[in-house]
Amino acid sequence: MSTERKSTPEAPEPAAPGPRPGRLTAAAALSALEGVALAAGGVYMLVMGLAGSPDDPRQAETGGVTLIVLALLPLLAARGLLKQRRWSRGPAIITQIMALPVAWQLLQADSAAIPAGIALAVVAIASLVLLVHPATTEALGIRGPGHVQDQK
């Protein structure tokens, strides 16, 4: 029994990605920006939990680790978008959808968090628009509903 992989003549080879549209690059940059912001916030919370004097150090440390782990989703999605990987659009869209309620909560605050809410909402909406644009979906090789590949 051989462990060698055999290709079948019916299996189509993956198409080489074409030139990356600017919209896809912009979506990747915005996703990476969100990931970096989450990681920075997580590191800040973790450091303040360990070295600072928060009300509840355990809660600050847990929150910091949680934000750092959550930062992986948009960072991986951004990397996938730059490499034109089809799977990366889903995590990128999920990240933007999750950012909208956070932006809404920041906008409801009576503090300096309002500008952060505005910025987050603008980035999330702009990213969503870029991610669902036909040029982006075409560059990622995503077909709309009803487009079934020809089968022999």
Rank of each mutant, 00 (worst) to 15 (best):
S53R: 07
S53F: 09
S53N: 09
S53W: 12
S53Y: 13
P54F: 03
D55H: 04
D56A: 12
R58C: 08
R58A: 11
R58V: 11
R58F: 10
R58M: 11
Q59I: 01
A60D: 09
A60F: 03
E61R: 11
E61I: 15
E61K: 04
T62K: 04
T62C: 04
G63A: 05
G64N: 06
G64Y: 01
G64P: 02
G64I: 05
G64L: 06
V65H: 00
V65W: 02
V65I: 05
T66D: 12
T66S: 15
L67S: 09
L67Q: 12
L67R: 03
I68F: 07
V69F: 10
V69M: 08
V69Y: 08
L70V: 13
L70M: 08
A71S: 09
A71M: 06
A71W: 04
L72I: 03
L73A: 06
L73P: 02
P74D: 00
P74H: 04
L75T: 02
L75Q: 02
L76M: 10
L76H: 05
A77G: 00
A77D: 05
A77S: 02
A77Y: 04
A78R: 10
G80D: 11
G80V: 04
G80L: 12
L81M: 07
L81I: 09
L81Y: 07
L82A: 14
L82W: 07
L82V: 09
K83N: 12
K83M: 14
K83I: 13
K83V: 10
K83F: 11
Q84M: 12
Q84E: 11
R85E: 15
R85A: 07
R86A: 14
R86N: 15
R86I: 15
W87C: 12
W87Q: 14
W87K: 14
W87Y: 14
